[in-house]
Every structure is written in structure tokens, then in C-alpha cells.
Computed example of a mutant assay.
Amino acid sequence: MIKKITNWHRFSFNMQSEHFYNYIETMEGSIESHKNSLEKRFEEQSKDIKDPAIKQEFYEHAFLDDYHDLDKTYTLILRKSLFISLYSFMESELRSIAKNIEKQNLTNKKLADFNDRGIYLYLVYLEKTNKININISKENRKKFKEYNNLRNYFVHNDNNSINQKQYDKLKILPYLAFEKFPHKDYTNYQVEALEKDFNPHYLNLISLFFDELFKGIEESNITL
């Protein structure tokens, strides 16, 4: 019975994560389609221009702003929005599991007893209070911490620069590109791009995390 119940939660999680994988494919396909359409328009409108220098001048005058908006601004907005949704998905799933276990009164501790918030509250409750083993590497734990910091930056401080200390931690995240702003005595950074594989990689880590969490729950003989 325990495994059947846990497997139902696993099935539900897998269905939702599959939805995100499909959305990523659709979103990235749309971005690529818009790029191809823009490039096709440029080639069509410049087909009679023989001089490469004039052709480049025409591109810069008529298409550069549109391409920049598509390749930088529009793409970054879409990928940031998806990243924040993935973060909320992970937090929501953890909250649901933690509250479900809390109702069983397996310990005398309640979620409200802790000072932690969000994902870290649920991790403390599951791992330390209920002794559920989540077998993920230290490197991936560091990544999750920096995904949390990146999410907070996007939500609360997106217009501010990233200092050197913050950058040194965030650069552990793959497929994340920064723009550098050197000053006389210090250097600031801003997120320049989330590359195409940024969100798929993050979703893969989330899936790996929950796979290990469900295993840990089953090994602890805790029902959901």
C-alpha cells in the first residue's frame, strides 16, 4: 500500500514535469521559428544587394533592432518566466509532500516551528525532522541554492547589478551568461542570457531530486 500511494504521487509529479518538458519544446520551437522568419525576410529584401558592406548596412538599419529584441529581450523574458515557474513547481510539490507528512503527526514538530521559509523549510522538515534521506550530490545541492538566489534576484532585484561575490556563486549554474561591467575598483554583472539548455537542465535536476525524495520516503516507510 505504501508504494502504491507513493507511486501515485510520483506519477502525478511525472505528469506535471512532462507538461513542462513539452512546454519547453514548444517555446523554444517558437523562438527558433521567429528567428528563421526574420532571417528569411532579410534575405528576401536584400537579395538584389550585391555589395556585402551595403548589405550589412541595410541589415543594421532595418533588422538589427528587431533581431536584438527577439534574440535578447524577448527570449530572455520567456526563459526567465519559465524558470520562475519551474522554481514554483518544485516549491509547491515540496510543500504538498511536507504538509501531507505533517498531518500524520510522526514527530512533535510542525512546519510553523521553523524559522526557514520556502524550499529550505520543507527540506529541513523532511530531511532533519522526519529523517528522510534524499540522496543528491553536494554539487547539486549547491546548484539548487544558487537557483534559489537567482530566482530571488529575478523577482526582487532584477534592475540591480550583481556584485562579484554574488557572481562567483551564481556562475556554478550552467547555461547562464553574464554581461560584465568593470569599474576602477570593482566589477558588476548582469544576467545577459539564459541559454537554450538552461531550463531543461534545471528541470532534469528537479526530476532527479524528486526521484530520490520518493525513494527516501519509501525507505522510511512513510505514507503520502
Rank of each mutant, 00 (worst) to 15 (best):
K3W: 07
I24T: 09
K196C: 03
F198T: 02
T73Q: 11
N130W: 05
H34F: 14
I31N: 02
K180W: 00
L86G: 08
F13W: 08
D66R: 03
L150W: 14
K145S: 13
E102W: 02
N105T: 06
V124P: 00
K72I: 09
L126V: 10
H68R: 10
F114I: 01
S137R: 15
L205A: 03
H34V: 07
K128R: 11
K109P: 01
Y202M: 08
W8M: 06
Y74R: 09
V124F: 05
N133S: 14
P182E: 11
I119C: 01
M1N: 12
H9M: 06
N100L: 07
I119E: 02
D168Y: 05
T73R: 15
R10M: 09
A193K: 09
E44L: 11
F13C: 08
A177R: 07
N148W: 10
P182W: 01
M15I: 13
A98N: 11
T129V: 15
E28F: 04
L208M: 14
Y59Q: 01
K40S: 13
N22W: 06
V124Q: 05
F214L: 07
D185P: 02
I162F: 03
F178Q: 11
S96T: 13
K40E: 15
S137F: 14
T107C: 02
A53C: 01
I217K: 02
I217M: 03
L126M: 11
F83G: 07
F181M: 07
H156T: 06
S85G: 04
E218D: 07
W8V: 09
P52I: 02
Y189T: 09
I31S: 01
E93A: 12
I2C: 04
D66S: 10
I97D: 05
